[in-house]
Every structure is written in C-alpha cells, then in structure tokens.
Amino acid sequence: MLTAVVKQGASGIEVSLTRRVDAIAPAPRADEEEGDHSEGDEAHHAEVDCEFPFDTTEDAAASEYPCEEGPSPILPEAKELLWGGGAFLAFLVLMRFFLYPKLRKGMDARYAKVQDGFEQADAARAAARAEVTEYEAALATVRAEAAERVDAARATLAGEREARLAEVHAEISSKRDAAMAEARAAREAAESDVRSAVTDVTSKVLEMAIGRAPTEQVEAAVADVMNSEVRS
C-alpha cells in the first residue's frame, strides 16, 4: 500500500481529513516518530491527528498549531523571514563597509605592485636595450676605424711593394738591356769577323780564279749576300 499523506490550506481540513481517516483504516500519522509506523489506537489519535512534526503530544499541545496540519508549506514564516533577512542584512553591511573594501584594498595594492614591477621591468629592459645599441654603435665605430687603419696599412704596403717591384723591374730590365747590348755587340763583332773572313776568303778565291784582285763592286755584292744569308 502506497499512501501519500497530503495536506491542504488553513481551515476546514479536519472534515476531509477525518473522512479520510474514517475511510482508510490505518491513517498515516506524522505525530509519531519517523520510522515508527505503528498502526495502533488510531481511534485515540483521530482527534489529535496532527500532521505537524512533533515528537510528543505535549509538544503538539504547546504549539501554535495544536491540532491543525500547520500552514501551507509555501507561505513564508515570520521568524524565518526576520532571522534570514537580519542575517543577510548584517552580512551585507559588514561586507559592504568593512570586509570587502579591506580585501579590495589589498588586491588593488598587490595589483599596483605587480603593475609597478611590470613597469620597472619594462624600463630596465628599455635601458638595457639602449645600452646594447650604444655598445653596438661604439663597436661599429671602432670596427670602422680598425678597418680604415687596415686599409691604410694595406695601401701603404701595396704602394711599397709596387715601388719595390718597379725598382726591381727597372733593375732587371736595365741589366737585361745591358746584357742584350753586350750580346749584340759580341755578335756584331763576330759577324764582322766572319764577314771579313768570308770576304777575305772570297777575294782570295776570286783572285786565284781570275788572277787579279776583285773590284770594289764584287766585294760589296759578296758582303750583301753574306749579310742576308747569315742573318736568316
């Protein structure tokens, strides 16, 4: 048997309830302790069939709702309204004027601190960056200077080498010229020797062949031939 005990509004309930009590034999009762679903002497309880939760009938008798089932469960109770509202308002006032501002102040201070830290870090980073650029600029000038010096040195070196080279070249060429002149002179001497010898031989051969000394003309022709033959 599944019995759901129900209750209605304020007054006039007894009638329907009694009826139900009469109709359904073991009337569900809530004035008994929970879990104790004894079904005895309901005739005695028929008058005191309170559904309001009281452990004992003395409690029920002392209650404002001695033998009714109590007000609708939906209606607010004045004492709960007062206590609940009072507690909330007290909490609200405390929070609004003391606790929250204090907490907020701490939070804001910390946030400001963190913000400060951020800003300081930013400034430090900017300073470091400026220093780095400065250093880099200095480095660049130094490097340029060094490069300049190296270039100058290289230029000097190159000039010196060129001069030296030219000198050596001149020396070499002069020596070669001298050697060549010497060689030419020697060859010319040799040539003239050979030529005179050849001319002599030719004149002697001619003399022997024709019996007289060749003329100047013949000698010149021989010398020409010699010149051209020996040269080639």
Partner: peptide
C-alpha cells in the same frame, strides 16, 4: 488559490483526487 484549495477539498471529500 482559495478556490483551488476548496476545489481540492471538495475533490478530497468525494475521493482523494487532489494528488492525482
């Protein structure tokens, strides 16, 4: 609400149809 609960009571008086 009054009318409803009276209605419910009447229903309960005849047979307990309120919960249904």
């Amino acid at each position: 609400m009054e009318a409803l609960s009276i209605l419910a009571q009447d229903a309960a008086a005849v047979a307990d149809f309120g919960p249904i």
